[in-house]
């Protein structure tokens, strides 16, 4: 479904992603593991196209020059240099790191804002789907999103991504700042989303809750792919154990 070949991203002269290749097949949950500054968020921004926008803005201001080289193919089509909104229309949706939401709108309004691509009669259906996955959101749907807790905002952020009818959902550090119980809930929700036919690519630092849930995983470090395998293989790999389980 998604195929990344020899991707390289430079921020000015710093190499953020170095010669990365990965594949995501239909219906999988694929994890990208890495510590801070491994290039996870850059990878997500590149896949979702946000980096194209950043690049244009920086070029206009004469700031850092961002260079993207390599090839990203989505369902057989080259999308490396396509604008982010175009990618969302094709079904690649990013739920960004640190759950950005519209703080002055209510939870329900946030979900409505995210459903521009849907027809009116579909919005209700999509919202029911989100409420079915995150039942807690239904209870707080009238509350201002800015006053929601971190976990609720994270659910809302993923819910908003779901409202845009994704076929490939990119989740950037969904577990960041959540308690272990909420992390478990979220991973259960992720599996449920996959059952609805959404392919998921998720980046994370916390390997322990994530690894059992993913089909395949890639481990990156300083922008370089160092390991890949199925979730089980990675769990038993001594290097991963040492680096991410603290054994």
């Amino acid at each position: 479904m998604l195929e990344v070949k020899n991707l390289m991203v430079f921020f000015e002269n710093a190499l953020a992603i170095n010669d990365l290749s990965l594949e995501v097949h239909q219906g999988e949950i694929v994890g990208v593991l890495g510590s801070n500054s491994a290039g996870k968020t850059t990878l997500m921004n590149t896949l979702s196209g946000l980096i194209i926008d950043m690049k244009k803005k920086e070029d206009r201001r004469g700031g850092e020059r961002i260079t993207v080289l390599g090839e990203i193919r989505y369902e057989g089509q080259e999308i490396t240099l396509i604008e982010p909104y175009e990618r969302v229309k094709r079904g690649i949706v990013l739920s960004r790191e640190r759950h950005p939401i519209f703080p002055d709108s209510s939870v329900e309004e946030n979900l409505k804002i995210a459903s521009v691509l849907r027809k009116d009669q579909e919005i209700r259906k999509g919202m029911d789907f989100v409420y079915q996955i995150f039942s807690h959101l239904k209870e707080i749907r009238k509350r201002k999103a800015g006053f929601c807790s971190g976990g609720e905002q994270q659910m809302l952020s993923i819910g908003m991504a779901l409202m845009t009818k994704p076929r490939l959902l990119l989740m950037d550090e969904p577990l960041l700042g959540l308690s272990p119980i909420l992390q478990k809930d979220l991973i259960r929700a992720t599996k449920q989303i996959r059952k609805e036919g959404v392919t998921i690519l998720v980046t994370e630092q916390f390997a322990r809750p994530l690894l059992p849930a993913i089909d395949r995983g890639y481990v990156i470090e300083n922008g370089v792919l160092i390991l890949f395998g199925t979730g089980r293989e990675l769990m038993e790999n001594p290097e991963v154990k040492a680096a991410y389980f603290g054994v």
């Binding site: 430079f10 000015e12 002269n13 020059r65 260079t67 080289l69």
Partner: peptide, 9 residues
């Protein structure tokens, strides 16, 4: 062969 522009002080 791919090229990129490099900026140097």
């Amino acid at each position: 062969i791919k090229f990129r522009k490099e900026r140097l002080d």
